[in-house]
């Protein structure tokens, strides 16, 4: 699984890194960043949870 945050769309709501800190971190301005592009198997649900809760639909998940 791959995860990608579109920096143009992300507005820094912070839902992804609040709900799935194992997969998403925040930068110094409070915007989301991916901790990895290839999500480890055991964190796939966390990655989906963060993406599903993004109010800007800024996170895409590519299922492998």
């Amino acid at each position: 699984m791959k995860v990608h945050i579109n920096r143009e769309l992300c507005q820094g709501h912070g839902r992804c890194y609040a709900l799935a800190p194992e997969v998403y971190d925040c930068d110094d301005d409070g915007y989301g960043i991916e901790r990895f592009t290839d999500v480890p198997k055991q964190l796939e649900d966390n990655a989906r949870r963060g993406a599903n809760n993004c109010p800007e639909d800024a996170i895409t998940i590519e299922e492998s």
Partner: peptide, 10 residues
């Protein structure tokens, strides 16, 4: 850009 870091979670 000036204001966001002042109100970041950190």
């Amino acid at each position: 850009k000036i204001l966001d870091p002042l109100f970041s979670p950190k």
